[in-house]
Design a binder for these strands. Structure first.
Length: 552
RNA sequence: UGUCCUAUGGUGUAAUGGUAACACAGCAGAUUUUGAUUCUGCUUUUCUAGGUUCGAAUCCUAGUAGGACAACCA
């Protein structure tokens, strides 16, 4: 008996539309502008749009909203397609607003003929002045009453390249006193003598968002056009265009965008971070971009689960980044292979273990996954353990290694610390321990029970690798509250690189592998890794109750 | 001194006029050869004031708070 998951408000609308017979199936679209890389906020929209057509039958188009040639590039188009596919969704049609430029031009001519659009010679400053304010009405442009014939001629000349950038625009003729600022004769077309990534130099006039988006939806017979809250005021114009063009009535619905703690999700600002080299690129593992989190090791499953859990509603929200990390851990726990890697090595010599002897000890690859098998770890009398796993003067409830205390080496033996060796500066440089021969993992007859279990690597076969430890990119929880330069809030400790000692099996790591370095976190191979120098990214840490306890 | 949108635990999201619930976070405990995982229990919630109703988180009115709107961006 599967429990019914409650519907979000958009699903309710769709179910009502399906039930009333208004629609038999639905068409949605994901409409990115190719002027940047996709981020987690887009993932929410992608999961929503594609998820809806999957759930209710129908399809989703990928449509690039490429009406501003000066900011758009094919590099972005390719990255967007990669990211959507990686997230696990398939679009029905790959479309571009620029596919409709001729169609849109004809729509503009129609509006002019209907007396609903006019060519305006006002400068942008003059137009801004005409616009009024939210509380005071605007004033009519002196060019507002040009004849249909004159407007037709002027608009055709605009298209023919007679005018320079900014010299003229085409505006809708609605109402300069309208309560909705967007309805005060909005600009429909502007002149840009710029090379377009797809249409080249064919056009020198380009439609504005409001004269491209809704029409594209309509041409594609999109039933439910889903966008974020900032477009609420645009809906009136969206509907006005459809009504006056007498075209298929797509409907727009708005939901609240994703905001996350310690994260900034503005394409403009992310671009700035890239351009100013605060990060290594759009796919820097600290970036909230899909290419960034992918490189970091997040899985599409985890991101889809996250999008599912955060829900869809109309109120502003600030999601705890901890929820994302929870989703990532939950998935990675099930799929990642366990390995032992020591980040900050402390040498341990086991004095009663035969010198020169090496034995191979099996260790499970993934206790969460049946049949995942074991790999063998070499063991000898000299090993490395984590420096943090020894304390000369331990606090209470510390059940790792301390003078006279015992601990189990994971998948190996129980050892007891007998002697602490220090250098001239008083730093601990080596531990002398004894082991319990009858405590071998899996065949322990020692009868000794220790609470602490630590990871280790055999010194002679340890493999040095580079590990990159990431922390949040920003130091403040709610980036929307900062008023000055956001760059002042970057976390200087967001990236730390360490050379760690890995068990020799890591030599066989491949790009698609997911690892849990025991007690340290989840890791994956970075794209810059080479066989000579393995490089790992920390995806996310493990939950650490002990660390939390210590902070109290 | 306008219009629109929104208001439920710390954070999100449900409850669709009939016992306010789920997840994350937090706290406590059990299990554990990862202080992980798993399991158990607990803390904490309807912005305010009126109204409609047998009954309101839900409907109505007003207030308050937050957000959006004055780009030839999307």
């Amino acid at each position: 008996m599967a429990e019914e998951k409650s519907l979000n408000f958009i699903e309710e609308i769709i179910e009502a539309d399906l039930q009333s017979g208004k629609h038999q199936s639905i068409v949605t679209r994901f409409p990115p502008e190719p002027n940047g890389y996709l981020h987690l906020g887009h993932a929410k929209s992608i999961c929503l749009n594609f998820g809806l057509s999957l759930k209710y039958g129908g399809y989703t188009n990928l449509r690039f909203d490429d009406t501003n040639p000066v900011t758009e590039e094919t590099e972005y188009v390719e990255s967007i397609k990669d990211d959507v596919r990686w997230l696990g969704f398939n679009w029905k049609n790959e479309l571009y607003a620029s596919d409709y430029f001729h169609h849109l031009y004809d729509f503009a001519l129609l509006l002019i003929r209907k007396g609903l659009a006019y060519v305006d010679d006002s400068t942008s400053e003059e137009m801004a002045a005409q616009k009024g304010t939210p509380t005071t009405p605007g004033t009519n442009s002196p060019y507002r009453n040009r004849s249909v014939e004159e407007n037709l001629k002027l608009f055709q000349d605009m298209k023919a390249g007679v005018y320079k950038d900014g010299e003229k625009v085409l505006r809708a003729k609605i109402d300069m006193a309208h309560i909705n600022m967007l309805m005060r004769d909005p600009v429909l077309y502007r002149i840009k003598h710029a090379h377009h990534h797809r249409t080249g130099n064919e056009w020198c006039i380009y439609p504005m968002y409001d004269f491209a988006h809704g029409q594209s939806d309509s041409i594609e017979k999109v039933t439910h056009s889903i966008c974020t809250l900032e477009f609420v005021p645009h809906r009136e114009l969206y509907d006005w265009c459809i009504k006056n063009l007498e075209i298929y009535p797509s409907k727009q619905y708005e939901f609240a965008r994703l905001n996350m703690t310690y994260t900034m999700m503005s394409k403009r600002k992310l671009l700035q971070l890239v351009n100013e080299k605060h990060v290594s690129g759009w796919d820097d593992p600290r970036m909230p971009t899909l290419s960034g989190v992918r490189r970091r090791g997040y899985t599409p499953e985890a991101i889809r689960d996250f999008c599912d859990r955060i829900g869809v509603a109309k109120r502003e929200n600030l999601i705890d980044i901890g929820l994302l990390e929870f989703c990532v851990r939950e998935h990675l726990n099930k799929v990642s292979q366990r390995r032992m890697v020591v980040f900050d090595p402390l040498k341990v010599v086991i004095t009663n273990y035969e010198n020169g002897k090496t034995e191979l000890l099996p260790s499970e690859n993934n206790p969460e996954q049946e049949g995942s098998g074991t790999r063998e770890m070499p063991f000898s009398n000299t090993i490395f353990i984590e420096r943090d796993d020894f304390m000369e003067v331990p606090p209470k409830k510390y059940f790792r290694l301390a003078p006279g205390q015992m601990v189990r080496l994971k998948s190996a033996y129980i050892i007891k610390c007998e002697e602490v060796i220090k250098d001239a500066g008083g730093n601990v440089v080596e531990l002398r321990c004894t082991y319990l021969p009858e405590s071998k993992s899996g065949q322990d007859t020692s009868g000794v029970h220790v609470k602490g279990v630590i990871h280790w690597v055999n010194a002679a076969t340890a493999l040095p690798v580079e590990v990159r430890l990431y922390d949040r990119l920003f130091r403040v929880e709610d980036l929307s509250t900062i008023e000055d330069d956001f760059r002042g809030y970057l976390n200087p400790e967001s990236l730390k690189a360490v050379t760690a000692m890995a068990e020799p099996s890591m030599l066989r790591a491949s790009a698609s592998d997911r690892f849990q370095f025991l007690r340290m976190g989840y890791f994956c191979l970075d794209k810059d890794s080479t066989p000579q120098k393995l490089l790992f990214n920390r995806t996310v840490t493990l939950k650490d109750m002990w660390a939390k306890e210590q902070k109290k």
